[in-house]
Write a protein that binds this DNA or RNA. Structure first.
Lengths: 215, 215
DNA sequence: GTTTACAAACCAAGCGCTTGCTTGGTATGG
DNA sequence: CCATACCAAGCAAGCGCTTGGTTTGTAAAC
């Protein structure tokens, strides 16, 4: 779907997770018309912002007429919502998978940080940026829907952070730490470029863990 | 100017700094027509976003006709730029003042965190949120202008963080830490409510410093 | 194995409305 | 008297979305 510009480069387990979500109809097939549209939408929404992206832009990006968009989606906003909802669904699943292979809370946190950096700076990056910067363009109703999904995602983090607090490994409040991490990690979309420049994604994960005194 | 909804409640030194900037013509007088317009613009841009705020909205907020706006600003984008530029100017000055009364780098960092939280969640909060979320709506030229001002601001942080690194108080890279802090602190605009709820701004500052292992 | 049926996917055209901004003129204060 | 600040009216362009009709894929009916 929208999230994958080079699906073939995905690790096997990630691809498996995606495919199972596709068969459950929770995310669109990246190769379907809907999936391609959502991917282009994520790209354009990130590049120019939701409001500055016209339905004509979206249509041109997938090679159809602007009116034909409304055969797939009833409104422009529904496209934005779909980008967000499917992104959260996929990343929640990926994050659960990343955590499941870790034993200690320290390892789990590292897995979470790493997975979130991957979601923000990897294949789903454009959609994640849309999630961060364009949520105000959602209607009240859509926003509630998206927030509900996000709560599931957030619960994963809070479990681990609360555990670390009880172990004494964490000094600050888990809720505060999570919110700070949300901001810090989201913000990497504005400056971190994994391709050019020395810092790898693993290196960045190290830095984050070090900053929290958990390395 | 735009930043102060209740100027009379400001600490004396902050008010002095503002006034000196006003006389230097670096920021608009909050009580001038231009100043009131910029304050309302910041409020509306934050509330609905730049694109969704019309010139008619802006005009109505200060009680004039939409066309009359263009007597004060040549374009709508110029209003956005003015909000950003004046906000950075004021906050840079406030931050320099906050730092000057601190001796050690530890104290200076605390002053910086506290000052940035104040700028984000205090009187200049609406304008700061605009700075975070609406920079994509600037033209290329305006963006360069804003970024140039922001560099001065950022240099303050990097000086202190580099000092802490040399002292061995900081494990991670100063540049990375600053960028993470930018994200973490900016993000507080989305969740932190200093008025209702137990956490004070000082308490939040404590949490941030604790998170970095610098308390 | 051709025909029929029909829904899904799309096009061409454009409607009605909102947008940023312009214009020509009028108050008002120093 | 003249600049500053405003109003009333509206223009041209661009917007999301609708409409009526055409193509395409698929699968049952004969």
């Amino acid at each position: 779907m929208l999230l994958l510009s080079k699906p073939l480069e995905l690790p096997v387990n990630q691809d498996k997770i995606l495919q199972s979500l596709v068969t459950e109809n929770l995310v669109s097939d990246p190769e379907s018309a809907r999936g391609r549209l959502l991917r282009e939408a994520a790209r354009l929404f990130r590049e120019k912002g939701y409001e500055r992206t016209t339905v004509r832009d979206l249509a041109a990006a997938v090679g159809i007429q602007s009116g034909s968009l409304f055969h797939h989606f009833r409104t422009k906003e529904e496209i934005l919502k779909a980008v967000m909802v499917e992104t959260i669904r996929l990343n929640t699943a990926l994050m659960q998978a990343a955590m499941s292979s870790a034993d200690s809370n320290r390892e789990k946190l590292r897995a979470l940080v790493s997975a979130e950096l991957e979601s923000i700076n990897g294949q789903t990056g454009e959609a994640m940026a849309v999630l961060v910067f364009e949520w105000r363009s959602l209607s009240e109703a859509s926003r509630a829907e998206v927030l509900k999904l996000r709560d599931i995602y957030e619960a994963l983090w809070l479990d681990v952070l609360t555990g670390l607090k009880q172990e004494g490994a964490l000094v600050a409040d888990p809720f505060i730490v999570r919110r700070m991490l949300t901001g810090a990690l989201s913000w990497t979309v504005t400056w971190y470029r994994p391709d050019r420049g020395g810092l790898t994604q693993d290196g960045l994960t190290d830095q984050v863990v070090a900053m929290l005194g958990l390395s």
